[in-house]
Amino acid sequence: MAGVLVVLEQRSGTLKSVSHEVLGAARTLADELGVEVHALAIGPAGLKVDGLGEYGADKVLCCRSDELELYQASRYAGLASGLADANGYQIVMLATTALGKDLGPRIAAKLGAPIAGDLTHISGNDGLVVMRPVFAGKATSTLKITSTPCVLSVRPNAFATGCVARDGIVEDVSPGDSGAGAQAVTIAVKEPEKAVLDVAEASIVVSGGRGLKEAEHFQLVEELASALGGAVGASRAVVDAGWRPHSEQVGQTGKTVSPNLYIAIGISGAIQHLAGMRTSKVIVAINRDQDAPIFKVADYGIVGDLFAVVPRLTEEIKKVRGG
């Protein structure tokens, strides 16, 4: 029985690892419901989809066309909702990423279905029950989904990738009508000159705040991040001051991150900042004020002048990581 349709995500013809997490979550749910997991891969002609069975897909529906290399919102939504309609999937799943946040609601609207996003738990044992953070993570809402089909979007880094191998038979599906005449078309994806690791995707994030005093001093943060192989993040105060781009802001009006390690440097820990990083696995704070609220959520803290502590930390990390 066709049960769960997972919409995968790709960039430049390579599937994103977050899609494996969605497959893992879908596999667990599908086993509870006794249904199959089908994956939908939309992308360019050269899109690679082998091996998805290992992540739990019973079948892989593959829609390849060079016109679909970039994310085309209404076409992607039309393809996913069309298949969901035609094959009678009860549940459409995807990741709460920049793409998923846009695509999920569109699919739901086309299906006339409810959508629950940013899910951290899903259970199919007693009806369909999901959990999601609300009020910037200050509360958790448990919801019972009462109508099908429905759309579920899962928070990155919240679900393990599955290891139950399935067939993962690949079946091509038609890309349908061309995009000619579409009302909105993605014409380009601008990549920065130097590729940057995004805070929302990094497993280690090193963030700096107003304690750095000047934009130039962010070099300290960059050096530590690069020694750790992590991404640079920022508080809103330094983004609004124009020291760092908006894309690096962590918090309620920035990005929500859940890395394995989050290091906050010269950040006080305002409630709106905590909203974006409190679910990180391990939090380290470096601040000269021992009463700074950031220490309340930190697993490990160093009280002291960041200009003395951070260079030493970078040096020691390089030794540990053999670099």
């Binding site: 920049a98 793409l99 909105a184 078309v185 993605t186 014409i187 994806v189 601008k190 929302a200 995707e201």
Partner: peptide, 13 residues
């Protein structure tokens, strides 16, 4: 619109 590590440019009517 910003996506992870890049920016999408969209034309619309």
């Amino acid at each position: 619109r910003e996506v992870e590590g890049a920016t999408e440019v969209v034309e619309f009517s």
